[in-house]
Amino acid sequence: MMATIGDPSRQGAAPAPTLKERVEDFLSYEGELLDERRFDEWLELFAEDARYWMPLARNVEHNNLEEEYSREQQDAAWFDEDKKTLLQRVMQLKGGDHWAEEPFSRTTHITANTRIENAAETELTVKSRFIVYVNRREGEVRLFVGKRIDVLRPVGAGFLIAKRSIFLDQSKLLFKNLTTFF
């Protein structure tokens, strides 16, 4: 849990966590909040000007890879959100009348291969891989695997997500709905 980082009672016993450990801890915590359906707390991890984007992947020629993903702020996408619209989605999820997520699906978010690509004083660029497993009602299973690039802003002992780009390894979505955050 994020709260344990920088916990004064631990400081004598263990060395202070590295930046990478803090980032990994943050991403694990964030996934935990989603899996525990603590959507409001999850949303608080986003900066007010946050952007959340999941482009479409296309099958293109080897020499045309710049068109593999739909373009940000220009083309269609699975998600193209700001914090306000993320809030609308959270409000929709929580009402008990959003039938695509009522009852809630069971989810497990796994984040791996976390690597800090760039660390400036005010912002970090973090690359990672994700596996998101969704089990809906009885037999329905959705497995999402892909890559993320996050821009994080250090705030106190933690971070805020300024931007999340999600690259799902599917061109045709192999499932019926994307009712889960990534």
């Binding site: 479409l56 083309d75 269609a76 045709k172 979505l173 192999l174 499932f175 019926k176 709905n177």
Partner: peptide, 12 residues
Amino acid sequence: VIDGILKFEIHS
């Protein structure tokens, strides 16, 4: 058309 066709699958 906005570039990018959404494709998905329903068991229906």
